[in-house]
Amino acid sequence: MISEARVKLMTRLASYEQGEGKENAEIGTYFRGDYIGLQVIKSVISATICYGIVIATMILYDSESFLSDIYKMDIVSYAKNMIIYYVIFVGGYSIITYILYSIRYRKARIKLKTYFNNLRRLQALYQKERKDRVR
């Protein structure tokens, strides 16, 4: 016999799994530190690539004067400035990533907690049905 309460609960669970459950499940497989650390590493790589593209564009933009001034300018201080700007840019982007993904992780954990509670309720319903059948 089909239990309506169980079907309703399973429908709710399946609906969640089809929708935002997919993303939250991926988040749920990581510990908080691992998940945020992974996203920060990805952000650092993206920011580095972007910074490289921007520097290359700036050099191409001003290529004539750059090539003519390269022997005159202080390369060490120029490189130091580039590194300082890189650290500020990547550091700022990483902090934004850290904050954003912390919030996302916390929200996903709340939804996952509800999901696991519903799974426990489903398990309890199954056990109750088995007991009823035995009687």
Partner: peptide, 11 residues
């Protein structure tokens, strides 16, 4: 496009 994708749309 690459800058917008890498900096923003990725997130």
């Amino acid at each position: 496009f690459v800058l917008i994708f890498l900096l923003y749309l990725r997130m």
